[in-house]
Write a protein that binds this DNA or RNA. Structure first.
Lengths: 228, 228
DNA sequence: GCATTGTTGATTGTCGACAATAATAGGCAC
DNA sequence: GTGCCTATTATTGTCGACAATCAACAATGC
């Protein structure tokens, strides 16, 4: 694999590692060794270190002084914390969106929503969640609170890891999920902040319940990888 | 100044720079040059770079690819964003605190509150806000949502910068401010999440209004330092 | 056999040097 | 004098090497 001759080396490395962490290829608690990685990727340790700082900002690794980086824990507790946070930040952003939506944003969100519906129709989970990201990206663009958006984008990889861990065990259909997006969108477009707020809040709490239920069942996927 | 022979070099440097940024010694928009700083502090650029990543995590500097680090903007917008965020995250943490407070926490918070009252009595703003931090630290310790706590701690320096910029122009007395803390504390101790939530929310919104009003008046303190 | 201590090996922390890139200044044509 | 192109300089990005530190293990004493 070649990481050279592209834009930002540390960003690429961070993204590469993020994918591995999200897909549980690198397990929670597992150590990430700089030298080994550097050799593996054919770069020096400097860009690796920067990448680890990026991942730390995204809550994907913990940086222990003089002990290096470890993939961050992914416990039931963490899932609860994550959704509790999203349950207050999403609505905050949603309110602003409802106040700021332009015609352009509206068209774009409608287009994404349509694609989501198609994926839901044929139960294509993987693609569906890609479009959920696109949906979120669009409505972040419409939001004015760049601080909240920045934090949400840093939380996103953790959310994706969670979704991946529970993706193939979900019992609720995508159509159930889609319902909330349709509802939220309706309130955005109508410029109704209160209802947009509520729709997003309900959505996250539903997701939270599902995630926790599945986490309890399949917690072997989440347990710490104690290193030897 | 000697930074050597202590714990974590990057942490120390980050804290050193954070103080300068908070006290507006380094102005919003101002560039931070690695080599210059390295020479100034008598260290190499490696720990400086790490420090800049830490400050970036705390929203105090922006890292522009191949253009280095600049002290992050500190506009009226930013102040609004910051308080809007705190207005939802503080209550979230407060709710949990109200459910988890131990006798130990209670004693500690009462002690801090008393010291705050003394400072308010003699209008010692500087010390007062130090104790506000201690208050916050205590109630974060009682909170269980470590993710929210982590984010709050990263937001704290920005809040302090804001407080510093408006500190000497505030018209409301510390006693007005203290009122909210007393109220919030009462609800924590009574184990009333809803009321604790509301007290914190009201507190932040009041702070927000004051900060924005002062920002509009004294925005010369906040304006960008365009580099030559 | 157990605890303590010293040694060794592995890994992160820091450094100075070089490469790549962006900002600046100067020269040239018009 | 103005605008564009080129050369120079300043600054960040990357590298390999060394120093400091930590973990594991062996040796020693009790």
């Amino acid at each position: 694999m070649t990481f050279r001759d592209a834009k930002q080396l540390p960003d690429q490395i961070a993204q590469h590692l993020a994918e591995k962490i999200i897909h549980l290829e690198l397990k929670p608690g597992q150590r990430i060794q700089e030298a080994k990685l550097a050799q593996e990727l054919g770069v020096s340790r400097s860009p690796i270190r920067e990448a680890l700082h990026i991942l730390n900002k995204q809550f994907l690794v913990d940086l222990l002084p003089r002990r290096g980086a470890v993939v961050s824990e992914f416990s039931e507790d963490f899932i609860g914390w994550l959704y509790d946070l999203l349950a207050v930040i999403y609505p905050l952003v949603a309110r602003e969106c409802a106040n700021n939506f332009t015609k352009d944003d509206a068209d774009q969100i409608q287009a994404v929503l349509k694609k989501m519906e198609e994926c839901a129709q044929r139960s294509d989970h993987d693609k569906y969640y890609d479009y959920v990201f696109e949906y979120a990206a669009t409505f972040m663009r419409a939001a004015k609170n760049m601080l909240a958006v920045q934090i949400l984008m840093n939380l996103w990889p953790s959310k994706r890891r969670m979704e991946f861990a529970t993706l193939y065990h979900r019992r609720n259909t995508l159509k159930d999920n889609l319902k909330y997006f349709k509802l939220g969108t309706k309130y955005f477009l109508a410029g109704n902040p209160d209802m947009a707020d509520k729709a997003l809040h309900d959505y996250i709490l539903q997701e939270r319940a599902i995630a926790l239920e599945l986490a309890r069942e399949y917690n072997h996927l989440l347990t710490t990888h104690h290193l030897g």
